[in-house]
Design a protein around this nucleic acid. Sequence first.
DNA 1: GACAAATACCTTGCGCGCGATGTAATTGCG
DNA 2: CGCAATTACATCGCGCGCAAGGTATTTGTC
Lengths: 152, 152
Amino acid sequence: MPDEFLLDEQACFALYAASRAVTDTYRPLLGELGLTYPQYLVLLVLWESDARPVKEIGEALHLDYGTLSPLLKRLEANGLVTRTRLPADERTVVISLTDEGRAARTRAAGVPSAIGCALGLDETERRQLIDTLRRLTASAAAYSSGGFDAQP
Amino acid sequence: MPDEFLLDEQACFALYAASRAVTDTYRPLLGELGLTYPQYLVLLVLWESDARPVKEIGEALHLDYGTLSPLLKRLEANGLVTRTRLPADERTVVISLTDEGRAARTRAAGVPSAIGCALGLDETERRQLIDTLRRLTASAAAYSSGGFDAQP
DNA sequence: GACAAATACCTTGCGCGCGATGTAATTGCG
DNA sequence: CGCAATTACATCGCGCGCAAGGTATTTGTC
């Protein structure tokens, strides 16, 4: 049996390395738009459906307020989104795209295909990778908050 | 054709989310040992072969000096490694395990299997995931520094 | 209608991760 | 040999990512 501690045997390290390699690939592309990868993810969420409370963005991206609050302030400072308190509930802050935020989608038109090309996976592999990663994420999340595959 | 900008269609986001979910799973386990996940990775490298220059550790983990230098100082401050300049070449700093650093391997004995369980993948899936991620990482790295699958 | 609990968000602190810049030691080249 | 280029590492600044603690608003309960 191979050593459990061997770096190259570990799916976790492959995941960790791959994730950073992908971010590296995004960096020059998004840099031209003045965006980081997490900021781009927030825009993806808003391009799907605009004017969403911070909570919903956090749920979509699995990010908490501690990460999102300053990130959204930077997006606001860069003129891509606005932050408005909901009159019906003064606790919730709704994030909306500005004209420039919507225009950024056009400017980013080439990004998904460029990345798709850089990853070098065919459609079958891509589908299967997404499927495996989603089950892995769900399994890890269940383990982290429950001990095993238990209900809350 | 589905919207290229859809979050759930993107392998990159699945990767990003999975990577953080895995780190979340490690955190409580490594927290008991006073380690972070990147620090644990450095120890994995040293447990494989001790007394390595910073450069080699960086190559193994795909991390640069800007990340490693302060991280290794923290490991030193916590008594797990020593940092010694090589007499033959005063530029290179060799990182070596202390007794406590070697003992940490025993204390971490249960970590790999606990994580393996948390991920919920069978051996076939695990192998294939590692293989796909490695090819993806290599492809992304080639793209990032060369334009396409070119030689250096 | 008062008040405790819950909710939505913000701030602080710390550890990465990476680009940019700096420094000392070594190598290579004429 | 002399000196420029290279190498190995350190430092700084900034943006995450997350835990912990704080504030303001709303909801639920009596």
